[in-house]
Design a binder for these strands. Structure first.
Lengths: 168, 168
DNA sequence: CAAGATTGATTCCTCAATCTTG
DNA sequence: CAAGATTGAGGAATCAATCTTG
C-alpha cells in the first residue's frame, strides 16, 4: 500500500461536515469510506465467491443464479427475457449464458407453445444434480464471507437500504 | 417480472429462523434480500454511474479512479503495482488501462529512477483538466444515486460494515 | 530466483443490427 | 410496428507466460 494513501484509510472520525456535502464538492472521509468501501467490498466478495464456485463446481456465479431461478420456477423453466429481469444480465447476456449451459448439458431449450417468439430454458436433470451439489458449499461461502459478518438487525438494515436505492 | 418470483421480493418479515441459518441450508428470505440486494444494487449503481461518466466525460469509472489517485499522489504519479493495490484491478488490468489513458493523453509513463523494473504513471495537465471537469458531476451522481439515500448514521454503519468484511 | 510490468489468449458481457412472430 | 431472441463486433478484464532487472 503506497504510504501516501494509508492516511485516507484510517477509520473516518465523526465529522460535522455533512452540511457541506452536497452538490459536487469533494467527498467527506465518511462518504468516501461508504462509497469506495462498497465498490471494494463487492469486488472482493464476488471474486472470492465466484472463485470458490468455479473451483469446486465449475460454475460461475451468474450460472448458479440462473440454475437456481430455473430450479425454483414452475416446470423448472423460464423464458430468456424473464431470466434477464430476474438477474443483473442483459437479454443477450442471458442468451449467451444459456447457450453455454446448454452446451454443458445443464439446461435445455424448448419452444414456447403460446408465443412462438419466446424460448424456454429448462433445467435438465443433470443441471438439477449439479446445482444440488453446488448449493450447500456455495451458500456456506456466502454466509462465511458476507452474511455471518452482520447481525440480524444489520441484515435487515442492509436489505432495507438496497430497497431504498432501487426506488430512486 | 415473472409472477412466481414476486413473492420472494416482498420485504422479509421478522423471522426467528436465523438459528437454522448456518452451514449450507437454504437462505432465509432476509439473507436472500441482503445478499441478492447487494449484488443487484451494485450492478444498478455502477452501471448508472459509469454510464453518466461515460456520456458526459468519456471516462470509465475505473479510469476516473486511477486519475483521482494520481491527482492525489505526490508528484501526481504512482507505480503500476501501487495503482493495482489501490483499486479493484489486477496488475495487468491497470497496465492496460494506463495504456488507454496514455493513448488518450491523460497520463504519461515515466521510468523509475531507483528501480528500473518499475514504471510510473503520471497525470498530465490534460488529464488533470479532464479530471477536474468530471469531478463535480461525478460526485453529484454518486451522491444522488447512493450517498444521499442514507443518513449519516447509516453511512457510518456502512463504512464500518465494509471494514468488517475486509478483516475476515 | 523474486518482483515489476507487459502481452497473448481467452472469457464474459454489452450494444446494435437482424430475424421472426404477434 | 413492437416484442422476444440471437448474433456480429468490440470492450474490458483476467490468468499465465514472458521479459527485464534486483
Amino acid at each position: 500500500m503506497p504510504e501516501h494513501l494509508t492516511a485516507a484509510l484510517t477509520p473516518p472520525r465523526p465529522t460535522a461536515a455533512r452540511a457541506d456535502a452536497s452538490g459536487g464538492g469533494p467527498l467527506t472521509p465518511l462518504e468516501l469510506a461508504a462509497w469506495r468501501g462498497f465498490l471494494r467490498a463487492h469486488a472482493r466478495l464476488t471474486r472470492a465467491v465466484d472463485a470458490d464456485l468455479q473451483a469446486r463446481h465449475r460454475l460461475s456465479l451468474s450460472a448458479y443464479e440462473v440454475l437456481m431461478l430455473l430450479a425454483d420456477a414452475p416446470d423448472r423453466r423460464m423464458r430468456i427475457s424473464d431470466l434477464s429481469s430476474a438477474t443483473i444480465l442483459s437479454v443477450s447476456g442471458v442468451s449467451r449464458l444459456v447457450d453455454r449451459l446448454v452446451r454443458a448439458g445443464l439446461v435445455a431449450k424448448e419452444a414456447c407453445p403460446e408465443d412462438a417468439r419466446g424460448a424456454f430454458a429448462r433445467l435438465t436433470d443433470q443441471g438439477a444434480t449439479r446445482l444440488e451439489a453446488a448449493r450447500a458449499s456455495h451458500l456456506a461461502a456466502v454466509r462465511a464471507l458476507f452474511l455471518a459478518r452482520f447481525g440480524e438487525a444489520e441484515l435487515r438494515a442492509l436489505a432495507e437500504g438496497w430497497e431504498r436505492l432501487r426506488e430512486g
